[in-house]
């Protein structure tokens, strides 16, 4: 831990990593709470795997078409939002096939990413980083984009708090009140997509669902309102990413995996305690 703090003061890449983790945590607290309340974690999973397709396509275009300005993160944002819109449209129009479409997108996004990456000259070494996270890969230029996404997600997520809350709690009632339920559902999926991209930079595509859902689930043990749950989830997420980063740095382990294990351990411990209490009562 001391080594981490010592190096943190000296190395810019560690500072960037920490900053990216903290920025992502804020959005994670707000959107993760909605995702848990509305029970759409599986949709977040499909969106995150589509991100690989976007990253792969962006890398391929930048290497072969000479689009140097195109960063993997740009591709990730486009793919995530596109996946969110497709899933949203399907789930609103034809609910019975929602399941199939989510499964299909999940795999197609992944597969197209692998094909793009295989076709991209001199690129393969980053694949593991994108899949399982390498927070140390965050470039300074990405940090501005991450900060921008963070602000956008927070602004939209909090401005429409009451509408989102009503849609999550009782969609039919909200519809009868004249709330545009479909619009807010789609907006929620887009916010989920943007948050997924933020979290991919921290823990990677495969582990994103864990970091999106676990802090909110931990917060749910203590919170009495969505506001409290969001605040607690953001704090929990910040603690998990910072603690996991420090631990992984000290133990020389992959950061994304350690962050998720830390979050999962705390969640399971709280659930076990809750179960024990419930048994006793």
């Amino acid at each position: 831990m001391n080594a981490f703090l010592h190096d943190l003061a000296r190395h810019a890449f560690l500072q960037h990593a920490l900053l990216a983790g903290l920025l992502a945590s804020v959005a994670c607290g707000v959107v993760g709470t909605y995702v848990v309340a509305r029970r759409i974690a599986y949709i977040a999973g499909a969106i995150s795997h589509c991100v690989l397709g976007g990253i792969g396509a962006a890398g391929w275009l930048s290497a072969t078409a000479g689009w140097d300005w195109l960063r993997p993160l740009h591709g990730a944002i486009l793919a995530a939002v596109a996946a969110a819109v497709v899933i949203g449209a399907v789930s609103l129009r034809a609910r019975q096939s929602e399941d199939t479409v989510i499964g299909a997108l999940w795999a197609i996004g992944m597969a197209s990413g692998i094909v793009f990456i295989a076709r991209t000259p001199g690129y393969q070494e980053d694949l593991i980083g994108y899949l399982f996270g390498n927070i140390l890969l965050v470039a300074p230029a990405d940090l501005w984009l991450v900060a921008g996404l963070d602000v956008a997600v927070l602004l939209l997520g909090l401005l429409f708090y009451h509408q989102f809350q009503a849609v999550c709690f009782d969609e039919e009632f909200a519809r009868l009140r004249g709330v545009r339920v479909e619009t807010f559902y789609l907006l929620l999926l887009v916010l989920t997509a943007l948050t997924v991209v933020l979290l991919v930079t921290v823990v990677g595509i495969v582990l994103v669902i864990a970091l999106l859902v676990l802090p909110a689930a931990v917060a749910g043990h203590f919170a009495r309102t969505l506001w409290q749950m969001m605040g607690l989830a953001a704090l929990a997420s910040a603690a998990f990413t910072t603690g996991g980063l420090a631990l992984s740095y000290g133990l020389n382990l992959p950061s994304g995996a350690v962050i998720v294990l830390l979050a999962g351990g705390v969640y399971l411990a709280l659930s076990a305690r809750g179960l024990a209490r419930w048994r006793r009562s």
Partner: peptide, 23 residues
Amino acid sequence: RLDPHFPVCVRDVVLMGRLGPGR
């Protein structure tokens, strides 16, 4: 149909009745 453990206080539930297009 409602999730009995949804984290929301009573007043916020009642305020959902005030939502609408013009809000």
